[in-house]
Every structure is written in structure tokens, then in C-alpha cells.
Simulated scan of single mutants.
Amino acid sequence: MAMDKIIEVNDLFFRYNDGDQWTINGVSMFVNQGEWLSIIGHNGSGKSTLAKCLNGLLLPEKGSVLVNRLDTSDEESIWEIRRQVGMVFQNPDNQFVGTTVRDDVAFGMENHGVPREEMLIRLDNALKQVKMEGFAQQEPHRLSGGQKQRVAIAGIIALKPSIIILDEATSMLDPEGRNEIIHTMRDLNKEYGVTVISITHDLEEAIYSDRILVMNHGEILDQGSPRDIFKTTKLLEDVGLDLPFTIKLRQQLQKQGFPLSDNALFQEELVEELWTLRSKI
């Protein structure tokens, strides 16, 4: 069954200054409604610039970006596009404006003129969706890194976007905080149908997505499902990306003569395959 494309990018070129090399160099891509797409690449690959083009923070020099068929270059459409595409950035401390969690989540809705009765309903629902309802009266600076990012996500959810972009949103978090965000976004994606675009160099995070785009020097080098992307790892290593632990362990075991397939992405899958091998000995 064909899937609806919620974002379409057509032959996109972008550079920050005339005469500079293209930061985005002829990129064409799409995002399906309801999918989790990871865009991966090392620092300077163009992935964060592409993210800012997807919600009109940056406008293309050539080519087009369509969000629900609205063109980001159309001044009359840009605010509707930004309402539909919420962004969560790298440093959660830079995103807080309220003195309490509740005030912070309400801030964006107040700016958008959401009626108070509706705002209260959305506020409670958003905090429940990220499992932060018990922290509504807390001061944001007293929260852990993962909790801060969950509050930032709640502020976006309350605006009811169709799409949430995580722009390196887990890169400053410890492993526990990173797992909190991955599980929160997985729930939003699977239970509520929110389209998720994850901009990351962390391949441990990317393996949870439905589809991956690999970027380098402003171009898309490869795309496919996580299983397709991680079957052949030379491209990822060539562009300077660190492979997930399970993939590296699988490769080392294969070099030691273990007859393992190239299918295992997750630790549980590798353990199951090793257990099956053991039972045959």
C-alpha cells in the first residue's frame, strides 16, 4: 500500500554565503507520514542544515521543500509549516522560558493564541504523553537532562505538530537520558502516529528508526531500512561514523569464525543467534 508523503524535498541547494561551497548539494528526499526517519552523518555533513530547511528556518537557494504540499518559500505558508513541524534542539537548557515545567509547556500555546480551556487540556495531555505529569510544578533547572528534553518535547506536542524533528537532541545526554528520549519518541510515533525525523550521528539511536538516510558533504550517499544500511558497514566507516556495539561485536565474532548472519541489529537478536549456534554444537 502506498504511503502518503508528508515532506518532499526536490533538488535542494543551500549555502550560508555566496561563493561558499554548497552545504546542501542537490538533495532530493521524502518523509512518509507516520514514519521514523533518521538522517545520519558526521559533523559538517549537512544534516542539521537540512533539518532547518524542512521547517523553513532556512530557505533554499535552489529547489523546493514541501510540507503537506505547502512550499517553505511561500511567505503565506511559512507560519503554518512551522506550526506543523516542531523542533527539539541539542541543549535543553536553551529552550526553557518558564519558571515551572507547567509554565514552560504553556508558553508556546500562549504565543499561538490557544484558548485557555483548550490550553489546559493540551498541557495535561502533553505531560502525560512524555510521562512528566508528576513534575508539573518543578523548576526546570532541577530536572535531569533526559527529563528536560522530555519537557521540551511536551512543549512541542502541545502545539499538535504533524512532525517532530530531533536535531541532535540526545547528544548531550547520558545513556539513561538518551534511552528516555528514544522510548518517549517511539511511543509518540507508534501510539499517536507522530512523524519523527531524527538528526543524529549516534547510530545506536538510528537503529530504532524505520528508514535511514546517510549524508556526507551535503549529499545523500545511501538510504534504506536499518537492516539494509547495516548489512554493509564500509560506507558508514568511510564517512567516520561509529558503528553500534552489537554490529561491532557481530563483526568481531564473524572474524573469529562464528557463522553468524548479517541480520542481527539488536543485542537480543545477537544473543538469540548465538544461543541457536550453541544448541547445535
Rank of each mutant, 00 (worst) to 15 (best):
E117H: 12
V114A: 02
W79N: 15
G98I: 02
R122M: 12
M109T: 14
G113T: 02
R83D: 02
L123T: 00
E118S: 10
D71Q: 09
D103T: 06
N94A: 15
V105I: 12
L127E: 02
F107H: 13
E117P: 04
E75F: 03
L66T: 05
E75V: 07
E118R: 08
N125Y: 04
Q95T: 04
G98D: 07
S77C: 11
R116K: 15
P60S: 11
Q84G: 06
D74M: 01
P115Q: 04
W79E: 12
Q84V: 00
I78Q: 03
R116S: 10
I78A: 05
R122S: 13
M109G: 07
L120H: 03
D93E: 15
L120M: 13
N91V: 04
D124Q: 05
N91T: 07
F89D: 05
S73F: 00
N111D: 07
V114S: 01
S73V: 01
N91D: 13
V88S: 05
R69Q: 15
T72Y: 04
G86Y: 15
I81D: 00
M87N: 07
L123E: 04
Q84Y: 06
E117R: 10
L70P: 06
M109L: 14
D71N: 15
S73P: 02
I81A: 00
D104H: 11
P92K: 09
E80G: 10
L120G: 06
V85F: 09
R83G: 10
G63E: 12
